[in-house]
Simulated scan of single mutants.
Amino acid sequence: MSDMLHLDSLEHLTRPSVADQVFDALRAKILALDLPPSTKLSEVDVARQMGVSRQPVRDAFYRLSKLGFISIRPQRSTTVSQISTNAVMQARFIRAAIEAQTVRVACDKLTPADHAALRDLLDLQRAAMTAKDPLAFHALDDQFHRDLCERAGCGFAWEIIRENKSHMDRVRFLSLSFASQDAFGDHVAILDAIEARDAASAMSHMQLHLGRIRIQIERIRADNQSYFATEVPCIPDS
């Protein structure tokens, strides 16, 4: 008997599974508020509408619940979670601490080729902003932050951020109707500082960029009270 390990092709392994596709579709609808907070979800209904079995839907629901996008109460109901202001502020706190250090490292490590690739990404952000396409802009915004981490050799940092930012994502998406120009300008300023290898400036601009959500969330809550959970603030505003 051969001891050789037989593996499927890489192409097969990297194709998204049905559960991945269901997860991606539901996450996009929750993020864009096509499925707003408190919307009830049913495995049976989602499976029927998407033309899949219930198992991949169940898997997607579990993943979404771990990220904080949905709330599953066994034998009762599954609903899209309300936005937690505390969770938003926790994510901002984590991101500000991690990403400030990431751009400090980026100032030393990024090459001219990295700078050029990030400039191309900013061009795509500008085009999405001009086209008034918030979903595309949000995806490119995420890509900018992820690419900064990865190009600085800190991909692990983005994994920590990604697992903690679901509530923040929805607030950021809601803010794009009035704050996309500020977000884009911040990205330009961050990259300018990185290219100049000015770590203090890069860190300051990143802190400013991620700190804007503290003001934006008040405006968004005033216009969308039903989207937010009622809770006692417990995160230091720093």
Rank of each mutant, 00 (worst) to 15 (best):
171 V>T: 09
195 E>D: 10
171 V>Y: 08
99 E>V: 08
140 L>I: 06
84 S>V: 01
195 E>T: 13
181 Q>Y: 11
131 A>F: 03
158 W>V: 08
218 E>C: 00
143 Q>E: 15
131 A>K: 03
13 L>A: 12
56 P>G: 02
221 R>A: 13
137 F>T: 02
169 D>A: 01
13 L>P: 05
85 T>V: 15
207 Q>G: 11
125 Q>P: 04
86 N>G: 13
114 D>T: 12
210 L>I: 07
171 V>H: 00
144 F>T: 02
229 A>M: 14
221 R>K: 11
186 D>N: 14
51 G>F: 05
51 G>L: 03
25 A>Y: 01
56 P>Q: 04
2 S>N: 11
73 R>D: 10
10 L>R: 07
164 N>L: 08
5 L>M: 08
33 L>G: 06
85 T>G: 05
19 A>V: 12
159 E>A: 05
73 R>F: 02
4 M>D: 09
133 D>Y: 11
80 V>K: 00
228 F>C: 04
209 H>K: 02
71 S>K: 04
18 V>K: 08
88 V>A: 12
46 V>D: 09
60 A>I: 09
92 R>L: 11
36 P>R: 12
210 L>S: 09
1 M>H: 00
101 Q>Y: 13
44 V>Y: 11
103 V>M: 03
176 L>P: 10
182 D>K: 13
211 G>T: 10
57 V>M: 14
66 K>V: 07
222 A>R: 06
85 T>A: 15
173 F>G: 08
236 P>S: 11
97 A>Y: 12
136 A>E: 09
141 D>L: 04
79 T>Y: 00
206 M>K: 08
161 I>H: 06
18 V>S: 06
191 L>E: 05
202 A>I: 07
32 A>R: 07
170 R>C: 00
76 R>E: 03
216 Q>R: 08
65 S>K: 15
4 M>R: 03
117 A>N: 15
198 D>G: 05
139 A>M: 00
144 F>L: 07
122 L>A: 13
220 I>H: 01
170 R>K: 04
108 D>F: 10
216 Q>C: 05
212 R>Q: 12
25 A>K: 03
160 I>L: 14
30 I>C: 03
1 M>R: 00
32 A>T: 14
153 G>N: 09
139 A>C: 00
34 D>C: 03
38 S>C: 12
189 A>L: 09
57 V>T: 09
197 R>F: 15
35 L>F: 15
184 F>V: 00
41 L>R: 09
116 A>D: 04
187 H>R: 03
40 K>C: 13
207 Q>M: 06
